[in-house]
């Protein structure tokens, strides 16, 4: 798979179809890291194997990456969904990013939103069974038990904001956590500050989380943060009939009124 990818990227770079390619590379001690390829020779460093599950969509809005020119990206299913969600939030345009993705062992490339949507529609987007199991377990807890579970997790948080930095949907130039007029979220990494931060972030991602799990994977304190945002996917889907990142022109469920919206929350 790596060879096919390398040849494709070499060709794209020689043809000047793209200026920079974001892909998976060999990291320290078997880790996978994002690498940025600008020349056909450097494309040799690209790899693709069963460990390359990371989405690099959070780089699409990074100024230094954008400044490099036309972007190509090795896209996992989650990266493609992040692209569609970013498009629906007017952060990237059609034909702006060339995505390479595997469709039944065939390497496809497309910058066309309609094509990407069609591919996504053919895929399964359920969260993984072990993650669902954990969510079910949490939902089966009493309120007190669930509170205790999360308080213990939040206690570990050092507020490094790796969750925010790794999240493709956390792109706000001015994060609510940084607002101080008024101060919504305590800056301190104490019990209240940590809880406020994670709950606020989860609420801002309700209906926008594309369940890539990056927040939890990058957490240096191993807090299962993805469970917070994943837990909001099903209610939004049930109430509004949509999951995030499937359509480039989707309207955001929580800020759009439709006459057919359920009104059963009105007492």
């Amino acid at each position: 798979m790596s060879d096919i990818l390398i040849n494709k990227v070499k060709q794209l770079l020689s043809d000047k179809a793209i200026d920079i390619f974001i892909g998976h590379g060999e990291g320290t001690g078997g880790r996978i890291r994002p690498i940025f390829v600008r020349t056909p020779e450097d494309a040799e460093q690209l790899i693709f194997n069963e460990n390359c599950k990371q989405s690099w969509a959070n780089y699409l809005l990074k100024p230094e990456v954008k400044a490099a020119g036309k972007i190509g990206m090795m896209a996992t299913k989650h990266a493609l969904r992040a692209m569609m969600q970013l498009a629906s939030e007017f952060q990237i345009k059609d034909n702006e990013v060339l995505a390479l993705y595997w469709d039944n062992n065939e390497l496809k490339s497309s910058a066309d939103f309609k094509e990407i949507e069609a591919y996504l529609a053919s895929q399964n987007h359920d969260i993984l069974p072990h993650e669902q199991e954990m969510i079910d377990k949490l939902n089966a807890m009493t309120t007190q038990e669930r509170w205790d579970f999360w308080q213990k997790e939040y206690e570990k948080c050092i507020k490094c904001y790796a969750c925010r930095s790794a999240c493709p949907m956390c792109y706000c130039h001015h994060c609510a956590a940084e607002g101080n007029q008024p101060q919504w979220i305590p800056v301190a990494s104490h019990q209240l500050g940590n809880m406020d931060w994670h709950l606020m972030r989860a609420m801002h991602l309700s209906g926008r989380c594309i369940n890539c799990g990056a927040c939890a994977k990058v957490c240096p304190m191993h807090i299962p943060l993805n469970l917070l945002t994943y837990n909001l996917i099903t209610p939004i889907q049930q109430e509004f009939g949509a999951i995030a990142g499937m359509k480039h022109d989707a309207t955001y469920a929580l800020s759009t009124f439709k006459t057919e919206d359920k009104e059963n929350f009105i007492l």
Partner: peptide, 12 residues
């Protein structure tokens, strides 16, 4: 280029 600007490095 791959730095995502979190504070994990500084805090540990």
């Amino acid at each position: 280029l791959r730095c995502i600007g979190c504070g994990a490095c500084a805090f540990v």
